[in-house]
Simulated assay, not measured.
Amino acid sequence: MSTEDKFDAKADEVKGKIKQTTGRVTGDEELESEGTVEKMKGNLKQAVEKVKDVFKD
């Protein structure tokens, strides 16, 4: 997993967590949902890159 890919995946996860928390605190269900999706996207990217690393070796 390249450093850039790790950064992008983690950035998506963190942005999603921030949106999710902000939406929860403000009562904005749409923002909370967007955050959840973005967080999951970051987690999925990380998982894909880990699988690539396994098959690369």
Score class of each variant (00 low, 15 high):
residue 1 M to K: 09
residue 2 S to A: 10
residue 2 S to C: 11
residue 2 S to F: 09
residue 2 S to Q: 08
residue 3 T to F: 12
residue 4 E to Y: 14
residue 4 E to P: 09
residue 4 E to Q: 14
residue 5 D to F: 02
residue 6 K to F: 12
residue 7 F to I: 11
residue 7 F to W: 12
residue 8 D to L: 14
residue 8 D to I: 14
residue 8 D to V: 12
residue 9 A to C: 09
residue 9 A to M: 01
residue 9 A to R: 10
residue 10 K to W: 11
residue 10 K to P: 03
residue 10 K to I: 12
residue 12 D to C: 14
residue 13 E to W: 05
residue 13 E to C: 03
residue 13 E to R: 08
residue 13 E to V: 02
residue 14 V to K: 03
residue 14 V to M: 06
residue 14 V to N: 07
residue 14 V to G: 04
residue 14 V to I: 09
residue 15 K to E: 10
residue 15 K to M: 00
residue 16 G to M: 01
residue 16 G to T: 04
residue 18 I to W: 05
residue 18 I to K: 00
residue 18 I to N: 05
residue 19 K to E: 12
residue 20 Q to N: 08
residue 21 T to P: 04
residue 21 T to N: 00
residue 21 T to R: 05
residue 21 T to E: 01
residue 21 T to G: 00
residue 22 T to S: 10
residue 22 T to E: 05
residue 22 T to W: 03
residue 22 T to L: 10
residue 23 G to C: 08
residue 23 G to S: 05
residue 24 R to E: 08
residue 24 R to P: 07
residue 24 R to S: 13
residue 24 R to Q: 10
residue 25 V to C: 08
residue 25 V to M: 09
residue 25 V to W: 03
residue 25 V to S: 05
residue 25 V to Q: 05
residue 26 T to E: 10
residue 26 T to K: 07
residue 27 G to F: 05
residue 27 G to E: 04
residue 27 G to V: 02
residue 28 D to V: 01
residue 28 D to S: 04
residue 28 D to P: 03
residue 28 D to K: 00
residue 29 E to Q: 08
residue 29 E to L: 06
residue 30 E to C: 00
residue 31 L to Y: 07
residue 31 L to G: 04
residue 32 E to G: 01
residue 32 E to T: 01
residue 32 E to I: 00
residue 32 E to C: 07
residue 32 E to A: 11
residue 32 E to M: 05
residue 32 E to L: 02
residue 33 S to N: 14
residue 33 S to C: 10
residue 33 S to D: 15
residue 34 E to T: 01
residue 34 E to S: 00
residue 34 E to W: 07
residue 34 E to Q: 05
residue 35 G to Y: 00
residue 35 G to W: 01
residue 35 G to N: 02
residue 35 G to R: 06
residue 35 G to A: 06
residue 36 T to N: 11
residue 36 T to M: 05
residue 36 T to W: 07
residue 38 E to T: 02
residue 38 E to S: 07
residue 39 K to Q: 12
residue 39 K to P: 04
residue 39 K to M: 13
residue 40 M to C: 02
residue 41 K to H: 13
residue 41 K to G: 10
residue 41 K to Y: 09
residue 42 G to V: 11
residue 42 G to D: 14
residue 43 N to R: 08
residue 43 N to I: 04
residue 43 N to Q: 13
residue 43 N to K: 13
residue 43 N to W: 00
residue 43 N to L: 05
residue 44 L to E: 13
residue 44 L to I: 14
residue 45 K to H: 02
residue 46 Q to V: 11
residue 46 Q to T: 15
residue 46 Q to I: 12
residue 46 Q to A: 15
residue 47 A to M: 00
residue 47 A to E: 03
residue 47 A to P: 01
residue 48 V to A: 12
residue 48 V to G: 06
residue 49 E to D: 15
residue 49 E to S: 12
residue 50 K to I: 12
residue 50 K to S: 15
residue 50 K to H: 13
residue 50 K to E: 15
residue 51 V to H: 12
residue 51 V to C: 14
residue 52 K to S: 07
residue 52 K to L: 09
residue 52 K to I: 06
residue 52 K to N: 10
residue 52 K to V: 09
residue 52 K to H: 08
residue 54 V to Q: 12
residue 55 F to V: 12
residue 55 F to M: 15
residue 56 K to L: 06
residue 56 K to W: 07
residue 56 K to M: 10
